[in-house]
Lab assay of single mutants.
Amino acid sequence: MLDDRARMEAAKKEKVEQILAEFQLQEEDLKKVMRRMQKEMDRGLRLETHEEASVKMLPTYVRSTPEGSEVGDFLSLDLGGTNFRVMLVKVGEGEEGQWSVKTKHQMYSIPEDAMTGTAEMLFDYISECISDFLDKHQMKHKKLPLGFTFSFPVRHEDIDKGILLNWTKGFKASGAEGNNVVGLLRDAIKRRGDFEMDVVAMVNDTVATMISCYYEDHQCEVGMIVGTGCNACYMEEMQNVELVEGDEGRMCVNTEWGAFGDSGELDEFLLEYDRLVDESSANPGQQLYEKLIGGKYMGELVRLVLLRLVDENLLFHGEASEQLRTRGAFETRFVSQVESDTGDRKQIYNILSTLGLRPSTTDCDIVRRACESVSTRAAHMCSAGLAGVINRMRESRSEDVMRITVGVDGSVYKLHPSFKERFHASVRRLTPSCEITFIESEEGSGRGAALVSAVACKKACMLGQ
């Protein structure tokens, strides 16, 4: 009897593995994704193909990295998701002549009506938060230079001027797309009239992360975010950046690689679950690469896999709870928690219980395998993109072996128990001629924006502006 049951459990697990095998990517698959990513990057950089390229390769006008001589107080704003952060950054000489960066910050959550109302409502709310922060720190009387981390696709015309191309991540505030974001912020500050600010720089969160990590390690020339969304930036040779005049030196390019796949480059790798996630998203047909990796989508992918296993009578005796059938019910943090389970399955059992399920031991094991399959594919897909960037940098610099540091931020990278190990191992397999160091950014977005502002202020002083 026991043997029969054991055989049935083994057969069930084997069927589960057959279904989950769809998520496995072979090294040849990853090399294919990497080569296609490089081709799209090239198209994004070139003037004649930029418009139709899915990977936009947006110039950021960040050319210099901090040298350690900029000092002063800077205000930093960070808008990239449902939370908005205001930070005071003091850049100065530390002990023994070292450079020191001290920060104080406060988080504000953005109400739904500000995210989806008008641009005026959104930026009025942001300036209200700045006003509140300055009151708390008794700094209303000071006109501070301000660095703005704005983590949406922007076409820069200068370091302090950028046109919002399109909202992502659930934002829909009308009247912002096609307009200068810094102008919208300046107008809102003017409307309030109770404080003055000098907006000197606007950067993407990947750029802010790279600059913040450069402060720790001067070989950091790539910034990457794996959180709600997924994106990367890197220092490109100016001669390859056709959208900006000049051939000397390097400029940081914001790849906006989340949109890779929007022209069909990933079609052969998309599964039924991916198509369902895409169809029910706020932007169907867009940001397809990001939807395979980002935390906004990972939990939902797992939920759809679990429903398939229920329908195949391989999980929960073929019956799903009402909660499990509800879109968004299986949160991405559950994926991390399930994979963090120590082996007694308590954590998995508790999560499934909150979803109205009474799982068996085998159910718990199957749910864990589903989570591992989805998150491992995410790590491997992400590795193909980064390997594409790094191999490109090595080739354009004609280096036999390139040493490089990548600064990384984002909740999936930082909080998932195995993502970074799987990701690092896969990147290294795909970049055999590179020695890569990964560092995690601390308060990256805010500190990085302030350091970019410090560079901009120093330049302005040198130019006598």
Rank of each mutant, 00 (worst) to 15 (best):
R358P: 04
A10I: 10
L122A: 01
V101Q: 14
G444V: 10
C461I: 09
A10N: 12
L276R: 11
R303D: 04
T376G: 12
A21N: 15
A201H: 02
H218G: 15
Y108E: 02
S383E: 02
M251W: 03
K414I: 14
W167D: 01
Q287S: 13
S131D: 06
Q347K: 08
D400A: 14
G444A: 11
A21D: 09
S151I: 01
V154P: 01
E177K: 08
L134A: 07
E22T: 15
S263D: 14
A53N: 01
I126H: 03
E312I: 11
E112Y: 14
D198H: 08
D3F: 12
S360Q: 09
L45K: 04
V241T: 05
Q38T: 10
M197L: 14
C461E: 13
S263T: 15
E96F: 10
D400G: 11
V455K: 14
K13F: 15
S441N: 07
G464F: 10
A320I: 15
K291H: 00
F148A: 03
R192I: 03
R250C: 01
Y349M: 10
G147L: 09
K12Y: 11
S398M: 11
R250V: 08
E95F: 11
L301E: 04
K104G: 07
H105D: 06
A454L: 08
E272N: 08
S151D: 01
L306E: 04
K169I: 01
M34F: 12
V455C: 15
V86T: 06
E236G: 00
G80H: 07
S100T: 08
T361G: 07
S336W: 00
S426D: 08
T60G: 01
A320K: 13
E279C: 14
G410T: 00
D4R: 11
D73Q: 15
V452K: 01
V338R: 04
R327L: 10
T255H: 02
Q287M: 05
S263L: 09
H416G: 01
G407K: 02
K136Q: 11
D365A: 13
K291E: 09
M37N: 05
Y413I: 07
M8L: 09
A387M: 06
V199C: 04
T118C: 06
F195E: 00
P417K: 13
L243H: 11
S398G: 14
T326D: 14
Y349I: 03
H141V: 07
L165C: 05
L357F: 08
V89L: 15
Q347S: 14
S64E: 15
V244Y: 00
E14A: 10
V200I: 06
M139Q: 09
E96H: 07
F195C: 00
T206K: 07
G261W: 04
R447L: 15
R327W: 14
P145W: 05
G410R: 04
K172N: 13
D198N: 09
L415W: 13
E421K: 12
T149P: 04
E435C: 11
M57V: 02
E279I: 13
T49H: 04
S100F: 04
H424N: 12
S396I: 12
S321M: 15
D363F: 06
S280F: 07
R186A: 04
G44T: 01
Y234Q: 02
G97N: 03
I189R: 00
T168F: 01
C434V: 13
K140Q: 04
C461P: 15
V101P: 09
E236S: 02
M197N: 05
V71L: 11
V408M: 11
E399T: 12
T255A: 08
G246Q: 10
C129A: 10
F316Y: 09
E28I: 13
M235L: 09
L357G: 11
D344Q: 11
A208E: 01
E440D: 13
V203Q: 00
E14G: 06
K291G: 05
M8P: 10
E265Q: 00
F330K: 09
R394A: 13
Q286Y: 14
L314C: 14
V182P: 06
Y214V: 15
L304T: 11
I159H: 00
K291N: 00
L292P: 13
K161P: 01
L355P: 07
C461N: 06
S131G: 15
E120T: 09
S336V: 07
A21S: 11
Y125V: 04
D205I: 00
S109W: 07
G446F: 00
A6R: 13
S64C: 14
Q138M: 09
L415T: 04
N350Y: 10
T206F: 04
G117V: 05
E70M: 06
Q286W: 06
L307Q: 14
E177C: 00
V241C: 02
Y125R: 05
G446R: 01
H317W: 12
E95P: 08
V401F: 09
E28V: 09
Y289C: 11
Q18A: 13
F419R: 10
F260N: 02
T168N: 04
L58F: 14
R43S: 09
A329Y: 10
K142Y: 09
L430Q: 14
L20R: 08
V335Q: 08
V277Q: 09
E443A: 06
E312P: 06
R191H: 11
E443C: 14
G444S: 05
F74S: 07
Q38C: 12
L243S: 13
I439C: 10
D194Y: 01
S109N: 08
L184D: 08
V406G: 00
E290H: 02
L352E: 05
T342Q: 09
F133Q: 01
R345F: 12
A425P: 13
D344A: 10
A387G: 08
M197F: 04
G328W: 11
K459M: 10
E443T: 03
K13H: 07
T49C: 06
E268Q: 11
K190T: 15
M8C: 09
G464Y: 10
R368Y: 11
Y349G: 11
R308L: 11
F23A: 05
C457Q: 08
L314S: 11
E237S: 07
M115T: 05
K172C: 10
V302E: 05
D42I: 11
R358G: 09
E322Q: 12
T405N: 14
E28N: 10
E95H: 10
N204W: 00
N166Q: 14
T49L: 11
D365K: 13
F316K: 09
A454V: 07
S375M: 08
A370I: 07
